[in-house]
């Protein structure tokens, strides 16, 4: 097994067992993991904002277009749409005292990701969301498990 590959903001990747992917330092960003347990193939898209503008050259940056692209790429890797399941990590509110409309962008990212996954018929099986702490998420494509760590030591496997 190789070292987990790091997926930054507005990046997308697909892996097969036994490879792993990691998103480091998710704040209001959301890591959307979609996995086919039958084929042991899955992918992550690391989105920053909820909705893509009409003219958009980086679909991976937005929850709606990112989810669509992730599912499309997974299907082109031979996965079966009926088997796909999704997990969501992130969407925290890092600065709660700012008087900015965008201060809780994390929640909007999550709402948009859920909505698009629902439209695409992909079921969400686990979530680790919100709060005021950043997270790192490691996705293991051999099990489909996502290990979520926070800054000060808590680890949870979903």
């Amino acid at each position: 097994m190789t070292e987990p590959r790091s997926i930054g903001i507005a990046q997308l990747a697909i892996v097969h067992a036994p490879d792993q992917l990691v998103c480091l330092g998710l704040g209001s960003c959301v890591a959307i993991v979609v996995y086919d347990p039958g084929l042991k193939t899955g992918g992550i898209v690391h989105v920053l904002l909820p909705r893509a503008p009409p003219k958009c050259d980086v679909p991976e940056k937005y929850a709606d277009s990112g989810v669509k692209k992730l599912i499309k790429e997974l299907l082109s890797h031979g996965t079966s749409k009926g088997r796909l399941v999704a997990k969501l990590v992130g969407g925290a509110q890092m600065f709660s005292n700012l008087n900015l409309a965008i201060a809780n962008i994390g929640r909007e990212n999550v709402m948009e990701a859920r909505k698009t996954l629902h439209e695409q018929g992909v079921k969400i099986v686990a979530e680790e969301l919100y709060g005021s702490r950043g997270r790192s998420a490691v996705f293991d494509s051999s099990t489909g498990k996502v290990t979520v760590r926070t800054a000060f030591g808590n680890t949870r496997v979903i």
Partner: peptide, 13 residues
């Protein structure tokens, strides 16, 4: 917090 998480909102805004 984690640097990446701290930078998310500045980037998003």
């Amino acid at each position: 917090d984690l640097l990446g998480a701290v930078m998310d909102l500045p980037l998003a805004s």
